[in-house]
């Protein structure tokens, strides 16, 4: 009768998993470990890390990638999303946020492409205020509403009034960014990988 000896079977099963693990994660892990952070890459500041945690909390990664492909494979560069990304760009990323969906545009260089803080704040408060037709959800809980008053009044208290267009904010109210919103925008603005890549020589 044909039957596989059980222990041969179990060894085989363990071996296949081990092979895949070694080839796909262990060996590349060792190869990539040798990669140093690129000279132009700055570690995240405290505030940017707080913003990054909000990026993770709100699940931005499910619609936005942070990886750009080389010319000849997609048109990322012609869209102005920046040079192809390399392992040295991600050394400070933990967890990684490469993303695999582009329901919205790539954000690898959003800080360079859209450096306006106001734009980001308005966009987070209601994406359709800056980008008509967008299907991005709004994040009103990153903002506070306050009685309408001249901007100076709030600026004196150290508050940041967001210039949301009138038809997108509650009547007679102004929108004030919370610290969380400012942190998130600080993180987005830090996504600037326009520095050059020195060719890695062997």
């Amino acid at each position: 009768m044909m039957f596989i000896r059980a222990y041969v079977f179990f060894l085989g099963v363990l071996a296949t998993l081990f092979l895949g693990w070694a080839a796909l994660t262990f060996i590349p892990g060792i190869q990539i470990k040798e990669v140093k952070p690129l000279p132009g890459l700055k570690p995240y500041t405290e505030q940017e890390l707080r913003g990054r945690a909000i990026y993770i909390r709100e699940g931005c990664v499910y619609c936005h990638s942070q990886q750009t492909r080389p010319d000849g494979f997609g048109v990322d560069q012609r869209r102005g999303w920046g040079r192809p990304s390399v392992p040295g760009d991600y050394v400070y990323d933990r967890p990684h946020l490469l993303g695999t969906m582009r329901t919205g545009p790539d954000l690898f260089n959003i800080g360079a492409r859209q450096p306006s803080e106001d734009w980001h704040l308005i966009h987070l408060y209601n994406p359709r205020a800056t980008s008509p037709g967008s299907i991005m959800p709004p994040y009103p809980w990153l903002f506070e509403e306050a009685e309408e008053a001249p901007e100076e009044f709030y600026r004196m208290q150290g508050k940041r009034v967001v210039p949301v267009p009138e038809q997108f904010r509650p009547e007679g109210k102004v929108v004030i960014a919370t610290q969380e919103a400012l942190d998130l925008v600080a993180y987005l603005l830090s996504l600037n990988h326009t520095y050059p890549v020195k060719a890695e020589k062997r």
Binding site: G20, W21, L24, T25, P28, G29, I32, K33, P87, Y90, V91, Y92, D93, R94, P95, H96, L98, T100
Partner: peptide, 17 residues
């Protein structure tokens, strides 16, 4: 143990596995 690009590799190796 993982971070950066290695973590991405582990992530998708796992997710597909």
């Amino acid at each position: 143990f993982y971070s950066g690009v290695t973590q991405a590799a582990v992530n998708w190796w796992y997710a597909h596995n």
